[in-house]
């Protein structure tokens, strides 16, 4: 069972949409008939404070309910967290870390100091978000980058789910902008 379980840890500042992203990823996987869990880190909430969120995805029912200590994927929505939060803590062997940054993956790798077998990826989700959504909301572009690097679902599956779930609340313009943001991040993410 263990090898089929994908455990994702999200790092962000409160207000950047990490909890929503954790949920969107779980819901997209559910549409592929996967078993899922998505949970925020429970505690006091303050805008701008460092927060974590978690997603589990598996082919089989997920029985564990403890904290994710050894994530196979870490997603960092805010580069300014790198000096203050140990984002690589417990990263599983061969794990993937994706950071919202304009630095190249090689630069990022030296900053993070991760093992050689770790995949380090960078994507400028904030700029993509500014261009498409007209504001800095890096959560949806990071899902595009996540899809590219992990293959847990395709770009089309994410876009379809966004259209479906956002369609209940937002205008077509907002949906299109989000799909554009996810697509650009999917195409632009670079890994080393």
């Amino acid at each position: 069972m263990q090898q089929q379980l994908t455990e994702i840890r999200w790092h962000a500042r409160a207000g950047q949409g990490a909890v929503t992203a954790a949920k969107l990823v779980a819901e997209t996987a559910l549409e592929l008939d996967r078993y899922i869990q998505a949970m925020p880190e429970y505690g006091p909430e303050r805008m701008g404070a460092p927060i974590q969120a978690f997603t589990r995805i598996s082919e089989d029912p997920i029985e564990i309910h403890n904290n994710i200590e050894h994530p196979s994927v870490v997603v960092v929505l805010d580069e300014s967290l790198l000096p203050i939060v140990d984002v690589t803590s417990g990263l599983a062997p061969g794990g993937v870390i994706i950071v919202n940054t304009c630095s190249a993956p090689a630069v990022l790798r030296s900053v993070l100091g991760v093992a050689d077998d770790a995949v380090v990826a960078s994507v400028d989700a904030s700029t993509i978000s500014q261009d498409t959504l007209k504001r800095d909301m890096p959560n949806t572009p990071m899902i595009g980058a996540l899809a590219k690097l992990t293959g847990i679902f395709t770009l089309e599956q994410v876009s379809d789910h966004l259209a479906k779930t956002f369609g209940k609340k937002f205008s077509q313009e907002v949906i299109d902008a989000n799909v554009a943001a996810v697509t650009r991040a999917y195409e632009e993410v670079q890994a080393s």
Partner: peptide
């Protein structure tokens, strides 16, 4: 149901 673990976790 268990607080947060079950109340607040999104599950299938």
């Amino acid at each position: 149901l268990d607080g947060f673990i079950t109340t607040h976790s999104i599950d299938r």
